[in-house]
Write a protein that binds this DNA or RNA. Structure first.
Lengths: 142, 142
DNA sequence: AATATAAATGCAAACGATTTGCAAAATGGA
DNA sequence: TCCATTTTGCAAATCGTTTGCATTTATATT
């Protein structure tokens, strides 16, 4: 059972077409250990398919987000990053010096009933947890 | 002991001048129960001082961030919000429908030594925790 | 395999938030 | 009050992202 095939059938089932551009974008994510910016995706994909356009990349990133295939990570830098949505729940540490972002398993939050959320009537759906600090390399350099 | 006076002397101590524009920006934050976008600050401030410019607002928001007087909150919507840095540690809930953002006291993370962070050699400095979901108003409407 | 139709693409231009260069104005110490 | 320095306003540039539209493509149907 191939992840790529799963994604392709998700697209088809929802009435979206499987274009060459989509295939290379999905393929780039398959080969991505962590996350890409839209610009990185564009570069990766252009290397495979000379004729792709930036707006096509953006439109497909948006689509893949909508279908729950990828996640948009928007961190302090202001530049969006995208990652394949895996089954594992994880968060990120982000280096304040070099900007590098790594996934971590640590999650301090469990979605038990919470008194404060109940009081303000807020219904949680998902959460984001980020730790900012210094990565090994940058903390050594200081 | 006035918070405004504290901020003014922080500016002076660091060699920055206390201009009319800075005064109204700080004043707007003093009167702000939670957070503003740069655009909201601009509108508030323009109501006090007809001759302020957007770039002045941005330059001063950046300065106040650098001096640790305000925080920049960058949430999923992509629009930056700014809030006075108070002594209280808090996080935010953000409505997926209307975009409203409220502060919450709930913080599931305590910066104890963490095995996973140690393993990757990451030195935490600060963290951000956000819960996305539906606010009271929007969850009723559904 | 040829066709029809709806969806997707490329292109260029628009967009919104933010940043910049520069000349003019304002601040605060001497 | 004068001067050096900082700060401002303005307009233009920038960056990431989105959009309108004509053309192309994928897929279901014949």
């Amino acid at each position: 059972m191939n992840k790529l095939k799963d994604i392709e059938s998700t697209l088809k089932n929802q009435g979206y077409k499987l274009t060459g551009q989509r295939r290379v974008i999905i393929d780039a994510f398959e080969q991505c250990p962590d996350h890409y910016t839209a610009h990185e995706i564009f570069e990766k994909v252009k290397a495979q398919n000379a004729n792709i356009n930036f707006s096509t990349v953006y439109r497909n990133l948006e689509l893949l987000c909508k279908l729950g295939i990828i996640n948009k990570l928007n961190i302090c830098s202001g530049i969006n990053h995208f990652e394949l949505k895996h089954n594992d729940h994880h968060h990120h540490v982000i280096c304040l010096k070099c900007g590098d972002m790594q996934g971590i398993q640590l999650c301090p939050y469990s979605e038990l009933k919470n008194k404060e959320l109940d009081e303000i009537g807020f219904v949680p759906v998902e959460h984001k947890f980020e730790i900012y600090g210094y990565c090994r390399k940058c903390s050594k350099e200081n």
